[in-house]
Every structure is written in structure tokens, then in C-alpha cells.
Design a protein around this nucleic acid. Structure first.
Lengths: 341, 341
DNA sequence: TGTTAGCACTCGAAAGGGTGGAGTGCTAAC
DNA sequence: GTTAGCACTCCACCCTTTCGAGTGCTAACA
């Protein structure tokens, strides 16, 4: 049996209708809904074929048909090159560049959730392979030193280091020079033991301060390592009856709240190197067990300097893929553009 | 009619039983459940009285009784001086003092949620009236200056300030001196226009940098102003059937996710100056509309330096007040003790 | 050979009806 | 003041019926 043009049209009609209503769709509906001018009986025959081919299923005998995961997949693939739609509101929010990046990301997540009526997540850019740009020790008082590390992409980290002995201005100056000379332009991975040893040696009697700074540096990076994820609109899933039953809703919201499991999704998305940067997980395709009744669409954005993050949208399988994909494309483009210059 | 000892005993029995089961409790149950040795008929008479007094209600004729808000209130008040219970696990977590404070708070919220099976929230300490402790400008490159502000309680804020002209080392030193001399020890409120004007005057040709720094300072504070709140265990509410219906659950979780409305609760709790620092909101007493089917217990903690925050627990009206209150007391004591020294 | 009308059939959702149990209020007896 | 007993109420549960939406199949038609 071959999937001819008419079958495809009917399949699309079924999916679109189901996306709207969430109810199984019957042959009579399609007969009226499309401009094919076919009777319901004919549609029934075709639907029977489509079911045999695995694109649609019946929830039970004598119910209408709903798309299977395979059907969605076909639909999504055939629709991937979609219209570009402007979303002015998003632009405005993102353009407030002076916002701190994390607040901006939260804003994007929230806006996206409000716009799409799905749950959203966004991961802060990972700074893997990021280089130290600037480093400064200052004396706060006799017992405490403030260490500031700026990495590329203007990621700033502070640590307060307690010291036993008071350091003179001169010593601080020397240490600053030493640290900057040795560490600037290095990635975290490049700061190895031999480098540290050589710095310690040059630091002379202030070895312990040096190692404290290095520790602080390592700590700063480590904090960033379990990458941060912001979510929004978790309660949107209550809008879709097929996800709103207690057990499922609880699982999904819990996953979004905990964020831990989302890292898998982020990593999966980041490692993907398709041309569009958009990935669609339908039902069982998702790497997150608790979301197997959902579909997830992810997009990666790139702020330059190797700072890449992921935006994700979680909704029912009958989500409006068309709109979601184009919205995501839009947003990632905005992000890319803005920070690259 | 007077609320004698026997009535009180029966009321407590009803409440305790309802807390456990979540089902309306009947006279026969109480007759067996308590050590009063009274027949169900007698209990019925007493229950009838208790209902007339407004402490218990019937969901419908010929059902058992459940406590009214007034009943809970009596119970909670009579129980406020409770046992002190050790919770070793909490101690350990909190004692990892070197954690950044926000991570610590997140940890507390999470642990508390896991421990109590309710939803939890914790507000980061407000730094109202907090003083500037240390201030430093450093040159990152020719066009950018890094401003670091440390406030009391070691709250650190960074801002990157773009400058049009390159500033010499000497100028930077001067500016640092100027800023520190004028601003250290001041609260944000004390930094007024005349102070700024006088500083600008002394800064001479670098007026614009000064005002940029002031702006950055103001910005740093503003960010902190809409105080940060962390929540955890929102999905715990699914464990209580009376809250688990879609509409209610969605409202509650949404409120927890949005956090905006929680500030009311925090402010309410912070403004309360009872001796224990513990407040219990039962049903309609809560300032948050969407949580009128819940009870909320809040406690304030005090890290010294005027840094006070709020911990809250959100659960069904039939929450285990006893356990919750003592757990909260415990935690706030730990927090208080630890940071005060 | 593809399309259509018609018909019997299936199944779930919603509505109705009966039953049992848990619980109450009341009364009379102790 | 306490208790046993009884009539009564009401919900939860189960079963049945009904209704409608939808299907598959067959026969007729172009």
C-alpha cells in the first residue's frame, strides 16, 4: 500500500483537527472539514488504510481515530520548513540587553509559556571551555579577601577568602599580577597541577593564598557545572485533559520543578548537530521517562564564545508543532543575533 | 453552653483522627478511639453541641464530622507549646556553612518538603537597611570597568560598566578612594542626591563614571528588592485528595511557581512580632486567595545584621500542625544560631 | 475500478435506579 | 447523665438502559 497524496491530505486533516479539539476524529468530520469532496464512506476506507499503515489508531472500536506517534512524526517532518512569524513582544523583552542574563532567561521562559500555553524550560548557557578573562583580589578587611573572576561572556563569580595574616597592598598587587599573568586566557581545563605548582612557587610565602584562589576558581566553575535551568508555565499542562490526571500531572510538574532530569534533555539537545538546531521528541522518543505522554520541542541558542543553551517546550502530543517550532526559531535567532555583535 | 474538658477531649480526638484519615469521623469511631469509655450515643450528643458551637461541621446530613476552621484554630492554639524534636539531618545540611546562602536556602526548602510531605517556600533574607561594606572598581579592559559592591552580610553584587575613555590606574585609584570614603557604612537610603552631587563634584572630569557606579549600585539593590523566594515540593499537594482536584492543584502550584503572591505572605509573616515567630494561617485566614483551602505555617529566621527571612509550609487544612511547628522552630533556631556567631 | 448510500453493529458516556452502609437524631429506659 | 434501640438520611457503588458517534461491510452506481 502506498501513501499517496490523498491519504496524506486526509492524515494531515485528521491531525490538524485533533490538535484543535483533542477528541478522536471521525470520518464524517473529515468529509466535511476538507475540500476533497469525498463522502464519509470513502474517507473511512482511506482511514482504514492509514490505520493499517500505523499512522493513526483507534482508542477503542467504534471511536474516531487519533494520530499515532508515527503519524505525528510524519506530520512534524513534513512541516519543518515553516512560515516565519514575527513576535514583536518577544523582541522587546529580549532587547533589554542590560538585564542580567539569568533574569533575561527567566523572562524568556515566562513569556514563552504565556504565549504558547505550554510548559517551558530554558537552560543557562554552559560555559564549557570558557576562558578566564580577568581576575582580581581585593582586601575587604584584615581577615578577608574578595576574589572576583570574570570569564568570557562576562560571567562573573565572587568568592570571599578568609586569610590568617594581613596582606599588604604591595603583596596584593604582586599576587594580582601573578594570577593574571598565569591564568588569563586559560580555560578551566588548562589550569593543571604543574601550572598551579609553578605559581605557588613564585608566590613565595603566600602560597596558601594562591591555592585558596585556585580553589575558589574551581568552586566557581563547579557551581556553574550542574547547569542552571529555569522553567515556567508548568501549570499550563492542566489545560490539556489528556495530561491533567493527577498521576501524570504530578510527575510532569515534579520533573519540571526538580530540574535534575531536564539536564539529560539539555545535553541531548546540545549534542545534536542538525542544521536547524530544532529537535522534536514525540511521546516515547523523549529521554525523560516521566514525559512519555508529552511531546517536547527543543532549540539551541548560541551567544558566541561557545556559550550555548537550550530552550524547551513541553506540551501534549497534540501540541501546535507549527507554531511552537516557528516561535522557537524566532527566539533563538533573536538571541543569537543580539549577543553575537 | 461551655466547652468543658470532655468536649475538648472529644474535639481533639476528632481532629487527630481526621488529620490521619482525611475522612469525616463518626461518633462510633470516637467512642472506640478514645479512652473516655463513652458510648457512641453520648459522643453524638457532645458532637451535636460541638457543632452548635462551631468547632466541627458536617459535610452533609448523616455524614461524620470534620473540624471547622475555628476548630483547627483552637487545636493549633492549644498545641503551640510543643515538644522539641531533634532533626539531625537538617542540622547537617545547614551546617555546611560555606555554601552560598541561596544554595543553602534551596537545600533547606527541599529537605523540608521531603521531610514533611507538604509544599515549602523560603524567602531569602531581605537586606533592608543594609550597609555598603566595600566597593571596588577595576579595569577589565580599555572600555569596561568592573564594579563590585559588597554589602553587610557579604551580599556581593557585580556590574560591568562601559566607559568611553580609558581611565588610568591613578584615576581608578582616586575614584575607588572617593567612593569608599563616601559610601562605606551608608545604607542605600542614606545615599541621597546631595551626597551624589558632592561626589560628582569631587570626581571632576570623571563625573559620568561616578554616576554610572551609583546607578549600578541602585540597580544592584533593586534586583534584590523584589525579594527572592525559593519553593520546593509543590507536587506534594497531590498527596491530599482534598487539594488534588485539577482546579485547586493548578491554582496552588501556579502560585508557588509564580512566587509573586508569596511576597504578601512573607511580608505578613515578617511584620508579625509574636514571641515565637511562628504563624499559622488556617483556611480563609491566609492572605493568599488561591490558598484558601490550605493551611500555611510560617516562621521567620534572623541571620543578624537585620537580615530576616521567612520559611513557610503549605499543606491541607488537616496538616500535622504539631510536627510542622516543631520542625520549623527547629530549623529557624539552627539558622539563627549558626549565623549569629 | 473507484465512489457512495445504507445498514447492522460496537462501544463509551451519561443518565437512571436500586442497594447497603455509615452515620445521625430522637426517644425511652436505666 | 448515660445508654440502647430505632427510624431516617444520604452518599457511594453497582448495574442497567439509553443514546449517539463512529465503524465495517455490502451492494449499487458511474
Amino acid at each position: 500500500m502506498t501513501l499517496d497524496d490523498r491519504k496524506l491530505k486526509i492524515l494531515h486533516a485528521i491531525i490538524r483537527n485533533y490538535l484543535e479539539t483533542g477528541e478522536p476524529v471521525g470520518s464524517r468530520t473529515i468529509s466535511k472539514y476538507t475540500d476533497l469532496n469525498l463522502s464519509s464512506a470513502t474517507i473511512r476506507n482511506e482511514m482504514s488504510d492509514l490505520e493499517e499503515m500505523g499512522f493513526i489508531v483507534q482508542p477503542h472500536t467504534s471511536a474516531g481515530r487519533i494520530p499515532s506517534d508515527k503519524g505525528y512524526r510524519l506530520y512534524v517532518d513534513s512541516m519543518m520548513e515553516t512560515r516565519e512569524k514575527e513576535i514583536e513582544e518577544l523582541k522587546e523583552v529580549i532587547l533589554q540587553k542590560e538585564e542580567k542574563i539569568d533574569r533575561m532567561l527567566k523572562g524568556v521562559a515566562k513569556l514563552l509559556a504565556a504565549n504558547t500555553n505550554y510548559a517551558t524550560m530554558i537552560s543557562a548557557p554552559a560555559i564549557q571551555g570558557n576562558r578566564v578573562k580577568f581576575l582580581q583580589l581585593s582586601r575587604m578587611d584584615d581577615n578577608q579577601i574578595l576574589a572576583v573572576v570574570v570569564a568570557e561572556g562576562n560571567v562573573i563569580k565572587n568568592n570571599i577568602i578568609p586569610v590568617s595574616e594581613k596582606l599588604s597592598d604591595e603583596t596584593l598587587l604582586k599576587l594580582n599580577l601573578l594570577l593574571n599573568t598565569h591564568l588569563c586566557g586559560k580555560t578551566i581545563e588548562e589550569i593543571n597541577l604543574s601550572l598551579i605548582a609553578s605559581m605557588k612557587q613564585q608566590a613565595g610565602i603566600h602560597q596558601d593564598v594562591v591555592s585558596d584562589v585556585i580553589d575558589a576558581l574551581a568552586e566557581s566553575i563547579k557551581v556553574e557545572e550542574d547547569l542552571q535551568i529555569y522553567t515556567s508555565g508548568a501549570t499550563n499542562i492542566f489545560k490539556y485533559p489528556e495530561l491533567a490526571d493527577n498521576r501524570k500531572a504530578s510527575d510532569i510538574i515534579h520533573t519540571l520543578e526538580e530540574k535534575q532530569q531536564l539536564t539529560e534533555l539539555v545535553n541531548d539537545a546540545l549534542s545534536d548537530e542538525s542544521d536547524t538546531g530544532i529537535q522534536v521528541y514525540i511521546g516515547d522518543e523523549t529521554p525523560i521517562q516521566s514525559m512519555k505522554d508529552c511531546s517536547i520541542v527543543t532549540a539551541t541558542y548560541d551567544l558566541g564564545d561557545g556559550m550555548r543553551g537550550t530552550i524547551g517546550i513541553v506540551g501534549p502530543k497534540r501540541m501546535d508543532y507549527d507554531k511552537v517550532v516557528s516561535t522557537l526559531k524566532n527566539i533563538t535567532h533573536q538571541l543569537d543575533d543580539m549577543y553575537k555583535k
